[in-house]
């Protein structure tokens, strides 16, 4: 051990702080640190710097994105990509069809926005290594009580272990009309799913599943008696639908 710990370099210490070391090397560095209290203290301070940076700036992630950033004036950008331009015209044609059929109204626009917000929250929090959730699954009772209280509705956390997805935990997020809850799940390959839940006071009703695709994130969303749900994952539509069905069954046993 001594021979392997003797050559611990400055680079190793930083890689240790940032969690970039392979398991074996990490253990060697730990042995080295036990023998060198001054270096151990320095590493502790660096880790604290990282944690403090997150505490300082992570709240920015939850700030609502200004609309001008969500809707780029992209018509002429698309001209550069003929295939994309063609797709755009198909979309315009399709949307016109919707309008003429009278399907497009404020409600569906709000639903589409809900799916988009769910997808953004998914994309923001699922890559987090150190802070994926505010409250971990180990404190599930506290998690569900806390979020139920904040959303003003009794929430249930569906268990998806039968599908290979374990609960990681959850967090509270700001939404348009109040607080939103996000639950995160993960399978053994690190693939993550999020369930985004908000209270919908006016919606004493149920809807069918609707589908949206935001970049690589697929979303199924629905309303079920005063709560709106959106299940997001970087999965194929069919696979996500299978999981969404299970979520729905677990919520309505």
């Amino acid at each position: 051990m001594n021979s392997s710990t003797a050559d611990v370099s400055e680079l190793d210490l930083h890689a240790y702080v940032d969690g970039n070391l392979p398991e074996e090397r990490r253990r060697q560095v730990e042995v080295f640190l036990t023998a060198h209290p001054e270096e151990k203290e320095r590493v502790r301070v660096y880790q604290e710097q990282n944690n403090t940076l997150h505490a300082l700036f992570d709240p920015v992630l939850a700030e609502p994105v200004p609309p001008k950033w969500q809707n780029p004036e992209r018509h002429w950008t698309f001209l550069l990509k003929p295939a994309a331009a063609a797709a755009l015209w198909i979309i315009i044609g399709g949307s016109l069809g919707w309008v003429l059929r009278g399907e497009y109204n404020g409600k569906s626009a709000a639903n589409i926005k809900f799916a988009k917000q769910a997808a953004i929250a998914h994309a923001v929090y699922t890559p987090e290594v150190r802070h994926p959730v505010e409250v971990a699954a180990a404190e599930e009772t506290h998690l569900v009580n806390w979020l139920s209280k904040r959303l003003g509705n009794r929430l249930k956390i569906p268990h998806l272990s039968a599908l290979g997805y374990d609960l990681v935990g959850g967090r509270l997020l700001p939404g348009d009309q109040g607080p939103v809850a996000q639950f995160m799940y993960q399978d053994k390959n690190g693939q993550r799913l999020t369930l985004y839940v908000k209270t919908d006071a006016n919606a004493e009703r149920e809807t069918a599943f609707r589908f949206a695709q935001e970049g690589t994130v697929a979303v199924f969303y629905w309303i079920d008696h005063r709560l709106s749900y959106a299940l997001s994952g970087e999965l194929h539509k069919d696979e996500l639908l299978r999981i969404a069905n299970v979520v729905y069954e677990k919520l309505n046993p």
């Binding site: 969500q70 953004i120 994309a123 923001v124 935001e214 690589t216």
Partner: peptide, 21 residues
């Protein structure tokens, strides 16, 4: 896939970095 929508998913992180920077 819509690349512009993909850009949008990175906005909160860009903003966090810019604020800290």
């Amino acid at each position: 896939m819509d690349d512009a929508a993909d850009i949008a998913t990175h906005i909160p992180r860009l903003r966090r970095y810019a604020r800290a920077l």
